[in-house]
Nucleic acid binder design. Structure first.
Lengths: 251, 251
DNA sequence: ATTTAAGTTCCATAAAATGCAACTTTCCGC
DNA sequence: GCGGAAAGTTGCATTTTATGGAACTTAAAT
């Protein structure tokens, strides 16, 4: 095991409500001797992976990480195009939007565009959600073949339930979530893929459940659909299904 | 020298228009034997610091880096409060805003809020600027004692020129740049510090030179000043100077 | 099919990481 | 401002890991 794995483990400490760490916290969370934790943090600091906050002993990710996040967003034409579409939609409707990627059974937002409405869903980039519980995740799972999904969820309770849900997503061309992930929050999502790089992203708008009448919902689906269709055509995404908005509730 | 330094060097490759790397590119840029580059990329991949793009041999930063950037932004109450103020100002005036930190003689934007005006300055997070050439940087240098600034710039041409400029910034409570950094782009900036963590951030609005009449400029200074003053009071920043907007040009 | 570039694996050597214990600094209550 | 405890750092012998050259495999270009 290389020191890199320990360094990565330290970096993983920063997920989910832990914006800074100390030697002692690393000692506790990774089960390392404090001498090792101390030297590890120092080495990471000297390498620029960490920095101390002000003059304190608390460490946060190095400034370099801001550049890396930016590089990630520019690493793929798919993410860039999707960001443009979602940014425009977020601005038009005033609701918060995301561009997300799937990784295993989880989805992560890679770009966020906070809405302008007084009542809006606050951005939460980097937050990981179970793919099967979010509209975004379901659109991305729907882009996989059924047997791939079955393999991914092999041995889990969701395995059997997922196929019909994904079939519906494929038929509609979009997915919807109604307070599935967060109480009071609905979402609509559409996925599009780049056959050249074998990547897929999901374009998503989230909004307060109580605030959006059916016709606005349809308009949002239309806006995302139009943008996604443009991307699909430009990149040659043969699997893209032009969404058919419906007023009925799709669980 | 630890493998961490080489790993960090690989990560630094991603700055500035290089969103992905290969084994050969690392070999060339770091001057490593290709055996080492190959193993280094593999180790970083297995640790989650890198990931391959689609099925190719190109590597980009790992998804983890998105969380790290988010953790950075939440690592300090100063940055969080400053972000709220700048986000509100960016929304009110339609101009792009930044929250920036100084590191040595450079400043980096750590949060950006793109404006809504048709003619707006595009966000450029992670971009590093010389501190003495940007409004943002000058407000942060102005928060240092003169002898500290002198030490920081010891042996450079700027050393002598900086003191009177910073004295003026201290007197006004804000700094301004008129096309100093980017042609056609003006900026106003105000710094505020957290005495508890010894950090300082700069709140900044950037806008097209031709678009903003004096009274709007004064209103923007007022909005940033009000927000910054609130932060200064909440955190106990004794060094904060309430800005005195003036219509005259401050170079 | 042939050539060339790109990437990976092998192996002995050299260098770095580890864990313990001793030591120093910082923080907290009084 | 003092005493004690917690947090953090450093020295040292041992073990593990990284390194670079060369051979080898895979992928791409002609």
């Amino acid at each position: 095991m290389s020191i890199l794995d320990n360094a990565a483990a330290v970096l993983r400490c920063f997920g989910a409500g832990c914006p800074s760490v100390t030697v002692t916290e690393v000692t506790a969370r990774l089960g390392l001797p404090k001498a090792s934790a101390s030297r590890l943090l120092r080495a990471m600091r000297e390498a620029g992976m960490l920095e101390t906050i002000g003059g304190t002993k608390r460490h946060r990710p190095g400034r370099m990480m801001l550049d890396l996040a930016a590089a990630f967003r520019h690493s793929s034409r798919l993410i860039e195009r999707a960001s443009v579409v979602v940014a425009a939609a977020a601005r038009t409707f005033g609701h918060t939007g995301y561009v997300s990627l799937r990784e295993g059974r989880e989805v992560t937002a890679v770009a966020d565009f906070e809405g302008s409405n007084a009542l809006r869903v606050v951005s939460n980039i980097g937050r990981r959600l179970p793919a099967h519980l979010s509209a975004t995740g379901r659109t991305l799972l729907a882009r996989m073949a059924d047997h791939e999904v079955a393999m991914l969820y092999h041995g889990t309770r969701e395995a059997a339930l997922l196929a019909p849900i994904l079939a519906q997503v494929r038929a509609h061309g979009y997915a919807e979530s109604q307070q599935d992930t967060t109480p009071g929050v609905d979402a609509i999502a559409i996925a599009v893929a780049d056959p050249a790089s074998d990547e897929a992203v999901s374009l998503c708008l989230v909004y307060p459940h109580t605030l959006v009448p059916p016709q606005e919902r349809a308009a949002m689906i239309g806006a995302l659909a139009k943008g996604a269709a443009g991307i699909a055509e430009a990149l040659g995404d043969a699997g893209f299904v032009l969404p058919q908005p419906s007023i009925e509730v799709v669980s």
